[in-house]
Design a protein around this nucleic acid. Structure first.
Lengths: 164, 164
DNA sequence: AGAACTGGTTGCAATTTGCAACCGGTTGCA
DNA sequence: TGCAACCGGTTGCAAATTGCAACCAGTTCT
């Protein structure tokens, strides 16, 4: 029990609203499939988006996402991402009850995936007038930037999430 | 009714085992979210994987994927992907009952997304000994290849799927 | 002291998934 | 010609997952 903040008798209970404990065999060992088994749902990538692009690292912040994720789903996804070592959870020194979620190196290396998804989405799904000029400009930058830009962004994430 | 092959009185019935007709508003207009609303489930990306990397274009072929997708789910996802214009469906001239699924330009431009997912999966989820040397070699090639390689692969897909 | 904020949990209804059986038409082969 | 195998699915049902809204016990702010 490394982080026994908060409520509820800490009885290792974990039944409600939770995806399987991820003990099961993967459906196959294809790398794409293994990745999809972690990322392939409606919320996980949005959580990572908010951590990467919006700098959100607290439960309450992540809960405020534009798409209105439910708190039980968020809790479950954070648990799974932690289990998969895409993120880690630690205490916030400034507030006994606050948890800080950080990207691991594994998580940071998802940035190119997110970037490509964003480029594709902006290109093919984007309602032009529904996005602010600033966002549009950043999309263009991402498209032009290429691997070097991603590397730079990943370096920044390493600085803030891994303290390097 | 453009393609009335097969069975069932064509009564436009569509109730069982189907995701919503996708008439609903998106949860938000964020490009990543809009993309995730199309791609964010456990099967869609695997179908696209098989179309892109394994050249599968028939229902029966796609049904044979390693992960054993159920036929009703496959039918539903193909319907959604068609609705989203990621793929198209057409008749096979050699066989009245065969449908050919083709990637659209929108679908082909998902290749970089799939490639990044594959790279990440191979890097971070891969059981080293569970993958053939040929696949491993191709993974390395993808990693080194960069945007130029993707462009080349996309050109090949255009040739076979769009007949250009 | 009380209000507001912290990271969640709980129960329940509604939706989605997965399974297995099945369907009617088409095609290849003997 | 006849029949088996193949074609793209559909159907009904049980099980799992999602979404909602209320709630909780500590902690911090005022």
């Amino acid at each position: 029990m490394q982080f026994a903040t908060g409520c509820m008798g800490n009885k290792l209970v974990a039944k409600c609203n939770q995806s399987p404990m991820r003990n099961e065999e993967p459906r196959s060992f294809c790398p794409i499939n293994m990745a999809v088994e972690v990322l392939g749902d409606t919320w996980t990538l949005l959580i990572l988006r908010d951590m990467m692009f919006a700098g959100k690292r607290h439960f309450r912040d992540l809960l405020q996402c534009e798409e209105r994720i439910a708190s039980n789903i968020l809790a479950d996804r954070l648990r799974l991402l932690t289990l998969e070592k895409v993120i880690t959870k630690s205490e916030d020194p400034t507030h006994k009850q606050k948890a800080i979620y950080s990207l691991t190196e594994k998580g940071i290396q998802l940035l190119p995936v997110l970037v490509q998804i964003r480029i594709w989405g902006a290109h093919h799904m984007g309602k032009i007038d529904a996005v602010s000029p600033a966002v549009k400009a950043f999309n263009r930058k991402l498209e032009r930037g290429g691997p070097e830009l991603w590397a730079q962004m990943m370096a920044e994430l390493r600085a803030t999430h891994l303290g390097r």
